[in-house]
Design a protein around this nucleic acid. Structure first.
Length: 503
RNA sequence: GGGUCGUUAACUCAGUUGGUAGAGUAUCUGCCUUUUAAGCAGAGAGUCACUGGUUCGAGCCCAGUACGACCCA
């Protein structure tokens, strides 16, 4: 194999890789294929364990049943004429045993060239070792895929977070906790979906590329459609499309998918992240509070087995019916410890924010300053689930105004563990009011706020046909997964988080 | 955008005042038929992130750059 042999001569390869390539050549010389196809895997280790772990050594001996398993060698202890090794498949690990007397010396010699990291097919019977471990006594061991790179150290595992994120495939091989997080993530999304479907919500897919970005206060990624020769924007939210579907007559819709926001990376933010947005005609934001408590309770119970969970050492009680509800301005007082004299006095508030290191832009509305005050002095103290409602109209351009006080909207944001998990409101379905709000946003954009909303004439046209009264919510799936997997960083719950390209 | 910290063998980490680059795992050789972080004996393995500076001499001190982590905005 000239290709493989030339591999060995490459000076930049480390010694371990060279050894493995040399072994691969030996195996091929002995007529062994390095990447054969066609092995029929029939049994998972976890199934085997579930079924036979309870059997005694004698019962296993009289079982006389062969199992066909496959997976990656993750541990190897050789005694010369006999070898113990652990094989990892999708369900877990199992110890396997290869003896020269069973395999025959020819096959055993070949087997001794296998390395940790190789993927093998094993066929054998079950027995129990002296120490009582359920073990597969191999009648045959077949190389299925040769691995030529060494895996990280077996005891400490992979610690370098940069390698863990860049080479997530290695992290998944060697870090059980990582596998666990992503299995849980899948379960969380599944239970989320099931909960919505059980309540009659219909899952839909709306565009990821928008001619006009909308539905959130954020900067978009820009891309370009060559054939039509115009710019497109990766969506920052699906909101305006989902509400068009309410106009179309679908009364309960939801979408679980990616949003893209052109902003910095932090432990809480990844430029592409997953949201579930749902819209419910003939419901109000108060109905959504109840639904949200049930939703979180359902998912926590299914995935964690309890509605009282621990996040970074703090006990979080997600039990439905117990969540706190508090008005936005009230929270500035009760939690933030401020008074009307500060948060209703523009100059005083601006001065305070500046003293705390916040930027205050000339001409910014009072409500925006109040939102900054909230971020500064309230948000981090919202540990237990809390709905903050009655957001100022000026910072809620898509929300229905409160009927008693139009300075505020029927909107809430959901907080826990000191961070936002959801944003919801009764929807603004008055096309004239919505047009005025858009105009207001356009003015802010012209004044220099590049996160302000764009005018969307088609969305207004849809509202002019009539959107039923409705309420809708967006819930950040990544943050929900962080919460339920006790993960301190969003990168721990995203398979391939955004990193700068390698040089 | 700002600050702090990190980058040494494939992995996990030491590295003294600035004086020949270290350990464990992994790898290779030998021994070993119930081990499980297997054991015993031996061997090999390094662009100390990168670039420049100070110095007789830099992994170590200084400056910058890259990437990453954390905190702040």
């Amino acid at each position: 194999m000239p290709m493989l042999e030339s591999f060995v001569d490459r000076d930049e390869l480390n010694e371990v890789v060279k050894n493995r390539v040399a072994k691969s050549c030996d195996l091929m010389d002995a007529g062994i294929s390095l990447y054969p196809n066609g092995f029929k895997k029939e049994d998972d280790f976890s199934q085997i364990r579930a079924e036979y772990e309870g059997l005694s050594a004698e019962e296993l001996e009289s079982l006389d049943k062969e199992f066909f398993c496959a997976g990656r060698i993750v541990g190897l202890r050789s005694f010369g004429k006999v070898t113990f090794f652990h094989v990892l498949d999708k369900s877990g690990k199992m110890q396997c045993y290869a003896a020269r007397d069973t395999l025959g010396s020819e096959l055993y010699q070949k087997f001794k060239k296998f390395d940790i990291g190789d993927i093998v097919g094993v066929v054998g019977t079950l027995f129990r070792t002296k120490t009582g471990e359920l073990t597969l006594d191999c009648k045959s061991v077949q190389l299925l895929t040769k691995s030529i790179r060494p895996l990280p150290e077996k005891y400490h595992g992979l610690k370098d977070v940069e390698i863990r994120y860049r080479q997530r495939y290695v992290d998944l091989i060697v870090t059980p906790k990582t596998r666990e997080i992503f299995r849980k993530r899948t379960a969380i999304v599944r239970e989320f979906r099931r909960f919505m479907e059980d309540r009659g919500f219909m899952e839909v897919e709306t565009p990821m590329m928008h001619p006009i970005p909308g539905g959130a206060t954020a900067r978009p990624f820009v891309t370009h459609h060559n054939a039509q020769d115009h710019d497109m924007y990766m969506r920052i939210a699906p909101e305006l499309y989902l509400k068009r579907l309410l106009v179309g007559g679908f009364e309960k819709v939801f979408e679980i998918n990616r949003n893209f926001r052109n902003e910095g990376v932090s432990t809480q933010h990844n430029p592409e992240f997953t949201m579930c947005e749902f819209y419910w005609a003939y419901a109000t934001f108060e109905d959504l509070m109840d639904l949200t408590e049930e939703l979180f309770g359902h998912i926590a119970k299914k995935v964690c087995g309890t509605t009282v969970i621990t996040y970074q050492g703090q006990e979080i009680d997600l039990t439905p019916g117990t969540w706190r509800r508090i008005g936005f301005l009230e929270s500035l007082e009760v939690i933030g410890g401020h008074t009307k004299e500060l948060y209703e006095d523009y100059d005083k508030l601006a001065a305070y924010l500046k003293s705390r290191g916040e930027k205050v832009i000339e001409g910014e509305k009072l409500a925006k300053l109040q939102a900054k005050l909230f971020d500064l002095d309230v948000e981090q103290d919202l540990i237990q689930p809390t709905f903050i409602y009655n957001y100022p109209t000026d910072i809620s351009p898509l929300s229905r105004k409160n009927e008693d006080d139009p300075r505020f909207t029927d909107r809430y944001e959901l907080f826990m563990t000191g961070r936002e998990l959801g944003n919801a409101f009764s929807e603004l379905n008055d096309p004239v009011d919505q047009r005025l709000r858009f105009l207001d946003q356009v003015a802010e954009k012209e004044a220099g706020d590049d996160e302000a909303h764009y005018m969307d004439e088609d969305y207004l046209r849809a509202l002019e046909y009539g959107m039923p009264p409705a309420a809708g919510q967006g819930i950040g799936i990544d943050r929900l997964v962080m919460l339920l997997t006790d993960s301190p960083s969003i990168r721990e719950v995203i398979l391939f988080p955004l990193l700068k390209p390698e040089s």
